[in-house]
Design a protein around this nucleic acid. Structure first.
Lengths: 206, 206
DNA sequence: CCGTGATCAGCACGTATCGTGCCGTTCGGG
DNA sequence: CCCGAACGGCACGATACGTGCTGATCACGG
């Protein structure tokens, strides 16, 4: 009596993709708590070796899974209205971070990163820095368009914008909602907006 | 043959204090990775019950341990110079967060908080919110002294100041050094400083 | 001075995950 | 067609979790 015709055993890159998807599914269903390598292997009907062969660390696996879910999140529009663009950008990022599958996987990566400096560096390099850079590009365009003061380097400003939102999302019970984003943009525009401002370069230099 | 005169078995609050201290010591020596309840009980030469009787959760224990190490950190001066005061305050907080024992315990709490919403809320309520509030009080005094614009609510600004620093410390490989703090204060003063500014209330109100 | 009850240390248990080793099977390229 | 790489399944020792149980130890009231 032949077993049910077992699906052909997949290999290589296909397996890798499947494992990442299982990780995301599992994260969406049971949350960060259930994200063990054992559970992922069980769920994928796969030997643990098949996982360990591909990722040396749970952090590495989670980072790749996060990237898989991340892809859609970086095509932000440029309508010419800086404030509106940033607002939409931050709102969408907030939704992405809140909902599965990105939400749970993100929290798992944050947790891993606390005990693993290498994972922390990778997390920043591959994701947070990407967000900062994307934001910096947008505000730099605005600066060139005259919407922002021309006498400041906006690199740090971009970090503060992102950091304030990540702080609120990850470390406070407060929601990253329109109110929060508008407040943040108020602060940003008050500091760097160019319209009708009496600029005092010495107020920034030191 | 009598054993070495075993030290009298301590109880109650004294034991509690000792356990918190062991947690901090262990965190300083082996870092977050070694902070299991088993390891703490072993190190304290204590049965695991003695730990579980006091704290229902590892998160609860870590939060209390953090508070024990935290105490010294909240007496910030008010010299009348807002910018200098904030600078010193943030520099000291940065040092505290970087060095043992607060550093490792803090990271442990952050990690726990990612899988436990209750721990996350408590973390914010007992520590992060305290920092925000302390900062808010200082900038509000400055506002009343005329150093800052009178037409804005600084609550959110205080959160952004703290959030930017915590973001950098916890989620990036960048150091929270003088350069970062000065950059942040530049932004803050540019947004809310009152000196020689042509204020435009409508730029903030919406 | 003695007794009683709470607290304690030590040990054990069952469950879970980790990372690794081994075995026999299955797949795919040469 | 055949060989080696990839695979699923199982087992292992180690560690941590949270919870029992036992008998010793301490604090307090009588």
């Amino acid at each position: 009596m032949p077993n049910e015709p077992s699906p052909p055993r997949r290999r290589g890159a296909v397996r890798t993709e499947a494992l990442l998807q299982v990780t995301l599914d599992l994260a969406a269903e049971v949350g960060y708590a259930g994200l063990s390598i054992e559970a992922i292997a069980r769920r994928a009907e796969v030997g643990k070796h098949t996982v360990y062969r591909r990722w040396p660390t749970k952090a590495a696996l989670l980072l790749d899974a996060l990237q898989r879910a991340w892809a859609t999140d970086l095509d932000h529009r440029d309508t010419g209205d800086l404030r509106a663009d940033l607002r939409e950008r931050f709102l969408r990022s907030s939704s992405a971070l809140t909902e599965p599958p990105i939400g749970p996987v993100y929290r798992a990566v944050i947790a891993e990163a606390q005990s693993d400096p290498a994972a922390r560096a990778t997390l920043h390099e591959r994701f947070l820095r990407t967000v900062e850079t994307s934001t910096l590009e947008r505000v730099t365009r605005a600066q060139r368009a005259g919407e922002l003061r021309a006498d400041v380097d906006l690199t740090f400003a971009a970090e503060v914008l992102c950091g304030a939102l990540y702080y609120r999302h990850l470390l406070t019970p407060r929601p990253v909602d329109e109110v929060a984003i508008d407040g943040l943009l108020d602060m940003f525009m008050a500091a760097y907006g160019s319209r009708s401002r009496t600029r005092r370069p010495d107020a920034v230099g030191g």
